[in-house]
Design a protein around this nucleic acid. Structure first.
Length: 476
RNA sequence: GCGCCCAUCGUCUAGCGGUUAGGACGUUGCCCUUUCACGGCAGAAACAGGAGUUCAAUUCUCCUUGGGCGUACCA
């Protein structure tokens, strides 16, 4: 019978969910979806000192926003420490682990000495051998695993292949701290086993840990899940991803105006590909995703490409959904009453703005003339367009506009006719008009803008431009 | 230092012994055009270096170089 796939996303709530974590979650989710399996969510909070509730919230909200839903309830690793302790003690009973009375201070000085002498710092395995057990008073021991001394531990990785680690370098790492809490290495293994995880998909910064964890699996005589260590995402400079590069909380991407589907599409192409496909629908992602197609090399985060994909998703997303997303951002930044007053105009302009915006924030920016109050302030280019010539043009055009029927079609006709009669190029009429009604040199079609703004507001703005331009302050 | 991993245009990548080395983002030029976008066309741009293996290497092996990850009573 075919084994049911169970993956997991296991972030540690010591920081927010960033782009790398999101992609790991995405791969786990896709793999589970592809095989009609499950993805579980587990919080690796064994380090209580560094874990925060705020981090938990942002991780969960981030996943929800991305639409990466998990099965069952969220599991907190810390709630399972009793079970971890039991396993640690069982390992001692099985002679696969031992109590270690070396104090952290002693360890630290050993490490310092080793590094200063130029060798690899290692615990000396003093307490591993039974003959040296003369238990010191007043020291609570930690539990260390008895790692094999010789040979190699081989990790079978679906992405990286067969990786062989010399056992002598793996060390007798601690599985239970002196305070009775489990370390990450123990709890991951126990939890993955107990939760029935069949596939571990995670960042390749865990590759060495995979070998250590395999030692625990073997000591417990448990089956090792299939592993897939995916390459990390680096910054533009190839260095570790930092905040400068985009290692921002997922929520920051929402605030910058990226669509979740665009982000997902961008992320799935980092380290994974399906031929030459770039824009990949969610259903195709699920259909096509396979661990075998994951790359081995790290990818660099590229905002330009993200923007390009985002603009595609903005252009092709449906009006209603877009409007909801835009309003959400707007309500975080603008007065409710102002938004409500101009919601109709905003609604009308979206189809024209979504063609030209790379992010929702850019879209809002481009539509902001809707909310502007008379008299408009002009940006530098609009100001220079509305020079003497520009104002002249408007003055001649104005009476025709006043007489025109206020529809996109009729306005277009009026303006084009006017330009033609006066031997003007359409551009030399449209630009001053645009500057006057939007305050910018760039906008959607002036005919659309006039219609959306409405007769009264449009004529008012043009009148302002004709009369009070000189007094108008430059924006920025 | 030691261990492990990685290496195709600037970036993401296709390629899985024989290709004019393909696509996308970005970039350059042109077309479309009321501005900006969109769209269309054209262009520049890569197999890190060196040894092998082979009739034939971007592709397989090794070395060098460069980069990354790990080396905690963090995860």
């Amino acid at each position: 019978m075919k084994q049911h796939v169970v993956t997991r996303f296991a972030p540690s709530p010591t920081g927010f969910l960033h782009i790398g974590g999101a992609r790991t979650a995405l791969f786990n989710w896709l793999y589970a979806q592809h095989h009609n399996g499950k993805m579980l969510l587990r919080l690796e909070d064994t380090d209580q000192k560094r874990s925060t509730e705020n981090a938990v919230d942002t991780i969960i909200e981030g996943l929800k926003w991305l639409g990466l839903n998990w099965d069952g309830s969220v599991i907190s690793q810390s709630s399972r420490s009793q079970r971890h302790r039991t396993i640690a003690e069982e390992l001692v009973k099985k002679d696969k682990a031992y109590y270690c009375y070396t104090t952290p201070e002693q360890l630290e000085s050993m490490r310092q000495q080793a590094t200063s002498e130029g060798h690899t710092p290692h615990y000396d395995r003093y307490w591993r051998t039974p003959h040296c057990i003369q238990i010191p008073h007043g020291i609570i021991p930690a539990i260390r695993i008895k790692a094999p001394l010789k040979g190699h531990t081989i990790v079978h990785d679906r992405v990286q292949g067969q990786i062989s680690f010399p056992n002598k370098d793996l060390d007798d790492f601690i599985i239970l701290r002196a305070d009775g809490t489990p370390t990450y290495m123990l709890s991951v293994v126990v939890d993955d086993h107990d939760m029935g995880i069949t596939h571990i998909i995670r960042g390749d910064d865990h590759l060495t840990n995979a070998a250590r964890q395999k030692i625990i699996y073997q000591a417990m005589d448990w089956d090792v899940p299939l592993m897939a260590h995916i390459p990390l995402i680096h910054g533009t400079d190839g260095k570790k991803l930092s905040k400068r590069h985009g290692a921002l909380a997922i929520d920051a991407y929402r605030k910058m105006g990226y669509l979740p589907n665009a982000l997902l599409n961008y992320l799935v192409r980092l380290g994974w590909s399906h031929g030459n496909d770039e824009i990949i629908s969610q259903s195709n992602m699920i259909k096509w995703f396979d661990i075998g197609d994951i790359n081995k090399s790290a990818a660099r985060f590229d905002f330009m490409k993200l923007q390009a994909i985002n603009s595609h998703y903005i252009r092709t997303s449906n009006h209603g959904a877009l409007e909801d997303d835009i309003l959400a951002i707007l309500y975080e930044n603008m007065k409710d009453t102002l938004i409500q007053k101009y919601q109709k105009q905003l609604h009308d302009i979206i189809p024209y703005m979504k063609e030209r915006a790379k992010t929702l924030v850019e879209l809002i920016d481009g539509a902001s003339f809707i909310f502007s109050q008379r008299p408009l302030s002009l940006d530098e280019k609009a100001y220079s367009i509305l020079n003497e010539d520009g104002i002249n043009t408007l003055t001649h055009l104005f009476p025709h506009l006043e007489k025109s029927i206020w529809s996109t079609e009729k306005l277009s006709e009026t303006i084009r006719t006017h330009a033609k009669r006066n031997g003007l190029k359409l551009g030399s009429v449209a630009q001053p008009l645009r500057a006057a009604i939007t305050g910018h040199a760039i906008s959607p079609s002036v005919f659309q803008v006039l219609t959306i703004l409405g007769r009264e507001e449009s004529l008012g703005r043009i009148r302002d431009a004709m009369t009070s331009r000189a007094k108008r302050k430059l924006k920025n």
